[in-house]
Write a protein that binds this DNA or RNA. Sequence first.
DNA 1: ACCGCCGGGTGCC
DNA 2: ACCGCCGGGTGCC
Length: 880
Amino acid sequence: LSYCQIIHIVSFCRGSVWGCSPRNFYTGERNYSHNSSSEFYSSLGLEGFSVADTSGTVEEDTDSAILYGTLRGSIVGLRYYKGVVNNNEMVALQREPNNPYDKNAVKVNNVNGDQVGHIKKELAAALAGIMDNKLAVVEGVVPYGAKNVFTMPVQMSFWGREENKEAVLDQLKMHGFKLAPPLKGKSCTFWISGKTGPTYSAPVHAAVHLTTEQLKSEFDKLFEDLKEDDKTCEMEGAEAVGTLLLPHQKQALAWMVSRENSDNLPPFWEERNNFYYNILTNFAVKERPKNVLGGILADDMGLGKTLTTIALILTNFQDGKPLPVEKITTSTFIQSVEKKYSEDGPRTTLIICPLSVLSNWIDQFEQHTSQDFHLNIYIYYGSDRNKDPAILSEQDVVLTTYNVLATDYGIRDDSPLHKIKWLRIVLDEAHTIRNPNAQQTKAVLSLEAHRRWVLTGTPIQNSVKDLWSLISFLKLKPFTDREWWHRTIQRPVTMGTPGGLRRLQSLIKSITLRRTKISKVKGKPILELPERKVLIQHVTLAEEERQIYQSVKKEGKVAINRFFNEGTVLAHYADILGVLLRLRQLCCHPHLCTNTSSSFSVGSNTPEELRQMLVNKMKLVLSSGSDEECAVCLESLTLPVITHCAHVFCKPCIYEVIRSEQPNASCPLCRSELRVEHLVECSLEEELNSSNGKKGGQEWISSSKINALMHALIELRKENPTIKCLVVSQFTTFLSLIENALKKSGFVFTRLDGSMAQKKRVEAIQCFQSSQAGSPTVMLLSLKAGGVGLNLTAASRVFLMDPAWNPAAEDQCFDRCHRLGQKYNVIITKFIVKDSVEENMLKIQNKKRELAAGAFATKKPSASEIKQTKINEIKALIDL
DNA sequence: ACCGCCGGGTGCC
DNA sequence: ACCGCCGGGTGCC
């Protein structure tokens, strides 16, 4: 295979994983393919990975639908059904193929889902084919005669894609029906509602189809000026909240508490002479419709959604009262715990989040709950999770992930989470359920709760479509049914119907609180982050170091050159990564790469021996802590697995490749056979643990880079001994070497890396964050340690000891101290060895940054562009 | 009258 | 349904 061919394969696989492949990738057996893929993932225990969004087909149809025309028909058999309608009320037409009297039967339901009657059979005969073949969507409105006893008229609108129009007209013609053209006077008359004035726009042609860009900017406007009175009141957290809330967090708390305790009518409902009217559908009911006791908290990242939600749980604990005090001492504890709850009604909050933030929730509960108060928190996760609903519903908080929830839900009758009526459900990072057909979404939507919250930083990611799952989760009538959502909100907005956006905005306003990083509270910016500066500190290797570096480089260069000439670059991927790794390690410290053999996989070995050698090499690269890239998603590896052919990918990425290429999948990089049972998982944590051990007997020596670091640290200590620093490296063994230097110079330090147990991490973080005299001033931090929530604001200096391939990984690391709560300007120093692979890495990083910044404006790179980039990268890195 | 017309019975799909 | 439709009763003017 030529390099060119290989790269082409890579780009194809990438497309299919992320849903960019041709649209018909998933068409046909939609449900089957969804179920099978989610089962596929859950059976493999894949967490935190959402199945590619395949919501293309049906939704796209309705989005690009045009109005073919309208037709008057009649609804018959009214006296047999209890569903009632008002004049001008929308009705739903639903096929009923199993009707024993007529296989063409079409039911008519009101907005509430109660059957009103049937479409008269002659008309039903014409509609059946159209509806069954999804040639058109047929929507009805009862223009008048709503109080009739036997039959009533229905005005039908036919919507579909342009290319189906002829087929629909033919089908109708065959049965003797003809559509009246859309628009023009007549069709408008029945859209004018009663005396409260016109709330409707005519269901006309798409006068203005907004472009994606236009829509996007319109959405942004939706969230502007949400500064209403009910959202600017402040509320102090209850005593149980152990952290002082910032003004904007107090506002959010007040708003959330009021949402949970109020009984206002939901949006678009009005009380009219003893009835409750929905002004969008004209549906009326006698019973007061319930508002959602909750809503959407859509603040930007970093404003403290987690903290605010914890404050809500503690402050509005039960019956509008806060969590009572609880001394966790003595045997009276059990008794008082039992007393703290009112006898009936649910008392448990269920929090569902992606795996990546699970530990953040645990940390934050720990950090923000006062000492004298006690919350029972159960982490519903892992194969040994307790599935007894009785136990779960005794907790104050149950934490779980979307994947665990969906896995349970997939196994019939084995989901305790679905057997409990929760006091409150919180969906964190709720945009992960925006695909309405995904198993996760279905599992979430079928949970029961009194109060419902959605936390998300990005409420609308691509279009209004994304909102439906969230609105449906909130159980806002009538939007739980997708048809009403579509007819009253989604279509008016996407078609640019006058008032459509205003309607959406009014909905959002009534249930959402959103502030951005640049929002203001009482005229002041909500977040005033100090400056962040990145400095590059060049390091020159000492003579002995340089000699070792040059000899390894020379050897590697010769080998890689040969691979290029032979066209076996990708077959020796592990070798190349190995060379680059050794060079990067030599920039840090000569002892880092003593354990890696530098011999190349050639010579008299059997192919099997060769393969095993390459796989072992890849393992060594990964176990060093190096933050490598996945060739499928081009991001940092998550859950790395090594293939038979010694290439490495994210586990979810490669499983998706295998799944989509069933039954004969091949490696995206080299086209070798790809089989699940050949994949080797590389559990980084274990490897890290084993490499953490002291280098027995080896004498401690410093290195040029360590010297540079120590010089900077000591200067800093002279200047201001209270300043705290993060010392970051990908290589945990390097951190261990640095420990020696720190000890020698008398620094008090702590350490945080991926191999540490949860409890030790919390200790390390608390210890470092403490401002007490004698607390550590240096934290040794591995680049990828901790989740997004990791808060190390005590540090205002960062020393990045080695560059990463992925600049985003570095930025994330910097944000751990450059975030809410940081009081000082943050200075980041990157140590880069002169004339080394590190300098070349910086160049590549810059290119990647430029690419990422321009990604919005420019097109995706073509296969050949990617190929050229890759070749150039490898060449540039090794100075070829 | 293998029709028309009358008036009672009846009624979704 | 103050309709349509069905099918039985009936039958010159």
